[in-house]
Simulated assay, not measured.
Amino acid sequence: MKDKIRVLVSNLPLPYQGIGSWTFEFNYFLEKNKFFDFVLSPNKEGDSSYIFSAKRKWFPGSQFVRQKALTDWVAKDYLSELLKIGQKKLPVQILVIDDQALLEAVCTIKTQLPQGSEIIFYYHGHALKLNPSLAHLTDKVFFLTEAGYLESLNINNEFTPEVHIVGNGVSSVIFHPLVADEKTSLRESMGFERKDIIICWMANSRPVKGIHLFGKLIPKLLELDPRIKIVTIGHEPNTLWENDRLFQIGKKTSQEVAKYLQLSDYYFFTSLWKEGFGLSLVEAIKCGNFILCSDNGGIKDVVSTYPNVHLIDKPNILNSWIEAFKEQLLKPNVDTKQQFQFSDFEEFYSLDSWEKRLKRGLA
């Protein structure tokens, strides 16, 4: 007999049709599991389980009546549906994904839900700052890394929720390393050569991802060795970067991204903010790249078990990246798969391992 009703609350439509980060793993979870009884999201193609709920925009002057605007307008759909679900008289376990306004709104109706109901917040940033009154009403917080939890503990005078380190998950079917012959074949099919030393960089155009610094690194990296070629993914093309050995390929699907990561040798992750996790970082690792990445936010936790990584502790200093890369170029070629077995790549932050961590947290 059912002892609780599980509800997933999202400000993005689920299942999600676009290119996303956590949306990909939740698409996987929802397709594989009948775990949540209800999913509240702005998906207009819903049914009795997937219920359309839209987060409305704040209106001018709403800051003066914030609480009422939040509950009676911004989060009205979600609260109305949750209260209907609460009428079933079973405790309601509510998982709010990465939206603090929705978390705050849901907490306002906690006393109106059946006894034993539980509110859980899945946070996809690094350090979480919560008002103590909100923290007291939040039963659990799911963090991406232990570093994120510890920094949250440090910046809050009171932090009362139970905590689980859930992380993220990446498809091992899409992202996986290739054996040498497969890698050579893929390179040749995509216009590269066996002898090329291929660097990959992937992010959007925001300065916090270090795009402006990587732009300054490009000529310095190319002059180190004539075999070096650079592939950049996910950002708007930059005419100042144009070079015969640089390929700006824009936004791609996960399957297309995987091919470029599989043919690459090095992955630069130049994040300049307190990174919550770094999903592309894991994708690059799972494809067998040597990683050069900022030691920022939760990144060190994410790469802690991977042997082929160089953490840059001064990521704003260009020479830190150049010297680290030169050091790797001077080393004998090492097949990363000799140090990290194929089974290790498969398990490394896989969707299946993430699913197990998520279910443990919701138990």
Rank of each mutant, 00 (worst) to 15 (best):
T239H: 13
A105H: 11
I322T: 04
K84Q: 14
K34N: 14
L153Y: 08
N308T: 03
E283T: 04
L279V: 14
L12S: 12
E188W: 00
H164V: 00
S320W: 10
Q262K: 06
K326R: 14
T232P: 09
D225E: 05
K251M: 11
T111K: 15
H164E: 05
D265E: 15
I291M: 02
D335R: 03
Y349L: 08
S185R: 10
E104Y: 11
D295H: 13
Q93W: 10
E45N: 15
N168H: 13
K57V: 09
F64C: 04
I211V: 14
N289R: 07
A147N: 02
K44W: 03
L134H: 09
D301M: 09
K274S: 14
I317E: 12
T239F: 06
K300V: 07
K110P: 10
C293G: 13
S80V: 02
D335I: 06
V334S: 08
Q93R: 15
H124K: 06
L150V: 12
L12N: 10
V141A: 01
L224P: 04
K229Q: 08
Q87I: 01
D99A: 02
S271K: 12
K259A: 03
S294F: 05
L82I: 13
E242M: 12
S48T: 15
L90G: 06
I322M: 04
L224N: 01
D98R: 08
L329C: 08
V303E: 02
Y349H: 13
K68P: 04
P332S: 11
L153S: 11
K183D: 01
S48R: 15
W354Y: 10
I197E: 10
N131R: 14
L311Q: 05
H124Q: 12
W58N: 06
H124V: 04
D181I: 11
E236A: 07
I174L: 11
W354I: 01
I94Q: 02
G20V: 07
P132C: 03
